[in-house]
Simulated scan of single mutants.
Amino acid sequence: MKIKLICLTVLLISGCQTKYENSLASAKKTISEFDGSTTINSRISQSWSKSGWMSAGVGFNGFATKGNFHSMVAEVTFINSITNLSKLYLNIDGVFTEYEPVSTHTKVTYGPATKIPMSTRGFVIPVLTVVKIKEAKYVRYRVTTLSDGSREGELVRDGKLSPAAKSLINVAEAIK
C-alpha cells in the first residue's frame, strides 16, 4: 500500500511539474499601442546542462516580431554568472551551425528573489532551425564567452524536448 501511495505521489508531482514547465514555455503576444506591431516572447526556461539549473545552468527563451517569418531571436541566459556571451553553436542530429549575437551587449540582471546574477544575450536564428529542433532526435548546444570559456548542454535528448526547446518552438509557431 505504501509503495502504491509513493508511486501515485511521484506521478502526480511529475505531471504537475510538466504542466508548470509547459506554462512557462508558452508564447505571449503583445501588441504595441504605438504602431500596432505584434511581438512574441516566451519566458526563460531551463535547458539540460551538467552543471544543473541554479548553480550554473543555461536558460533559453524566444523573441520575435509577428510577420518576420524567417528569423527570430534565441535569448540565452547564463545563471549565476556575469560574463559576456559571444557565440551560440547548435548540433542538431550531427549538423553543426554557428550563430552570431544581435548587436546589443550582454545584459546582466539579478534574480528578483534570489539576487543571483544572470547574463543574457540574444542570437538571431532562422525559424527553420527551430522547426528542425522540434523534429530532432538530439540537439546539443555550446555557448562561448569572451572570458569564461563556454557552457554546454542539451535542448533535445532522445527526442524529448527540454523546457528551453519548448520555449523556442512556441515562439516560432506563434510567428505564423
Rank of each mutant, 00 (worst) to 15 (best):
Arg43Tyr: 14
Val156His: 08
Lys137Gln: 14
Gly36Cys: 04
Ser51Ile: 01
Arg151Met: 02
Ser119Phe: 11
Arg157Glu: 07
Pro126Met: 05
Val127Pro: 05
Glu154Ala: 12
Phe123Asn: 02
Arg151Val: 02
Asn91Phe: 03
Ser81Ile: 03
Tyr89Glu: 11
Leu155Thr: 03
Ala56Gln: 08
Ala165Glu: 02
Val156Met: 08
Met54Gln: 11
Phe78Gln: 07
Thr104Pro: 00
Ala56Thr: 00
Glu154Phe: 12
Val171Leu: 05
Thr18Pro: 00
Ile79Trp: 03
Lys66Ile: 03
Tyr110Lys: 13
Ile79Leu: 09
Ser26Pro: 03
Val131Trp: 03
Arg140His: 12
Glu33Pro: 04
Gly153Gln: 01
Thr65Trp: 03
Ile133Phe: 07
Val127Leu: 07
Leu5Val: 10
Val108Pro: 10
Gly122Leu: 07
Thr77Gly: 14
Asp35Trp: 03
Thr120Ser: 15
Ala64Ile: 06
Thr145His: 11
Cys16Asn: 05
Ser42Val: 07
Pro126Leu: 07
Val124Asp: 03
Gly122Asp: 07
Ser71Pro: 01
Thr106Glu: 08
Gly59Ile: 00
Val127Lys: 04
Gly52Cys: 04
Ser150Asp: 11
Phe69Arg: 14
Lys19Leu: 14
Val73Gly: 00
Lys87Trp: 12
Gly67Trp: 05
Phe63Gly: 02
Asn170Asp: 11
Lys132Gly: 06
Gly153Met: 00
Ser14Leu: 12
Val131Ser: 07
Gly153Tyr: 01
Ile6Asn: 09
Lys2Gln: 10
Asp158Lys: 13
Leu155Arg: 00
Val102Met: 06
Val102Ala: 00
Leu168Ile: 05
Asn68Tyr: 13
Ile40Cys: 00
Met1Cys: 09
Leu11Met: 14
Trp53Met: 04
Leu12Cys: 13
Arg121Gln: 12
Thr9Asp: 00
Gly15Ala: 13
Glu100Thr: 12
Lys176Trp: 14
Tyr138His: 12
Ser147Met: 11
Trp53Ala: 09
His105Ala: 10
Leu24Cys: 09
Thr104Val: 04
Lys87Pro: 06
Ser103Arg: 04
Leu11Arg: 04
Ile31Arg: 05
Val143Lys: 00
Ala136Val: 08
Ile116Trp: 06
Met54His: 09
Ile79Met: 11
Ser103Ile: 02
Lys107Cys: 10
Ile82Asn: 14
Leu155Gly: 02
Ile79Arg: 01
Asp158Phe: 12
Ile40Val: 10
